[in-house]
Amino acid sequence: MPASATSSAPDPGFGLYIHWPFCRRKCPYCDFNSHVRESVDQARWAAALLRELDWYAARTDERRLSSIFFGGGTPSLMKAQTVGRLIEGARARFDFAEDIEITLEANPTSVEAASFAGYAAAGVTRLSLGVQSLRDEALKFLGREHSAAEAIKAIELARATFTNISFDLIYALPGQEVSDWQQDLERALALAGDHLSLYQLTIEPNTGFAGAVKRGEFALPREEKAEEMFALTNSLCAAAGLPAYEISNHARPGFECRHNLTYWRYGAYVGVGPGAHGRLVQNGLRTAYQQVRRPESWLKAVEKSGHGTESATPLSDTVERAEEMLLMGLRLDEGVWFKNFEAATGAPIGAFLDAGRLRRVVEAGLMEMDERRLRATSEGRFVLNSLLAEILV
């Protein structure tokens, strides 16, 4: 059953995020914590990740994992043995849900695709491919190493190896017309498994693209065109049986990314590795953790002290928790469930919203509310940040 069709507040789940910070090259649009290194001692890194996992396993009330997510960086640069060692290490420290989802992000180069069978044997149940485009000229602009032909072969191999796959595309590229995106998306839907992540290109600070835009080398499509592409994305995906369950994510019913749902539903999760974030609950207190970003600094800290924590911030401010939960939950088509909201914040949702302004945005068709939940419509999710600023007290 799709998340948006549930009749009662869902369990947010409990996840583990493992960050592998290494890439072959840095893409110009990427602001993730990724680094290029000539060589990596994978045995040493796996030992450090498991040691930090010990640290956080002792600092959470949760014991049953519903998902594991290998993100990066480029996790498909890991050997299958390394992935298997980390999965078994997690199993030794937590109980696994019977239907645990274990996702690994991968690049669709032919070299990395050769490892797919090994990842499946190691316990990975879901593969997420960073395709980004099915046009060679766009891939070159985005700084990707693979070709469109390689991407298609990798998608086909992934579908033959895993029962659950996803791939990413980026749209609203410089010079891209709505008709161009429609052709690309229709082609992607013909190739897709059960999940697609479709992101509008944004220019993040301190990236290669940020400098290029500042120098006037290119400009993004105007906002009206990007909004038209967003609406087209939602309509085409819904017609193909992959409705949007989150602003940028589309899935067949039952194939929503369980790990990301834990984030958006404000569930607890462990994050290990350089720059990883975590949200853990111990003795009823929710704490936000962040690790040191630089790989070598993180590794040195873990080997010395058992963890690479840069900050641990108790989320004791009820208003802060409420705003964070609304910002995350309203990204979802299902919205924010009142029962879960009150459990996480200790107060009803109405205590944080201006009733008059909320009524006006509902009348404008940007939000909907019933006795169980508050949700943004598709039009509302496109302007979510300004919408939240409008309705919060």
Rank of each mutant, 00 (worst) to 15 (best):
K339D: 14
F94I: 13
A5R: 15
F69K: 00
S4C: 05
S297N: 13
A151I: 07
L201N: 09
F116M: 06
L129N: 03
R279I: 03
G130I: 10
S386G: 15
H250E: 07
L392S: 08
I68P: 02
T74P: 07
L139D: 12
W181Q: 14
G89F: 04
N107R: 14
I155N: 01
L169K: 09
R279P: 03
A212L: 04
G306V: 05
S39V: 10
L392E: 04
R279A: 08
V292A: 09
Y269Q: 05
E342F: 04
P205E: 11
F94E: 11
T309R: 04
Y17L: 07
A149S: 14
Q132Y: 03
L242P: 11
T287Y: 09
N249V: 08
D184C: 10
Y56Q: 01
K26L: 12
L16M: 08
T207S: 07
G241I: 11
A351D: 15
S133T: 06
D136F: 08
A210G: 01
V319S: 09
R24G: 14
L127W: 00
R126K: 02
E227H: 14
E363R: 15
T345F: 01
A106E: 12
R63P: 04
S297A: 15
W55Q: 08
R381F: 12
E310P: 01
S305A: 15
V178D: 05
P108K: 13
K300V: 05
T60L: 09
C30W: 00
V292H: 07
D194Q: 15
Q176T: 07
V36D: 08
L173Q: 01
A376L: 11
G284M: 06
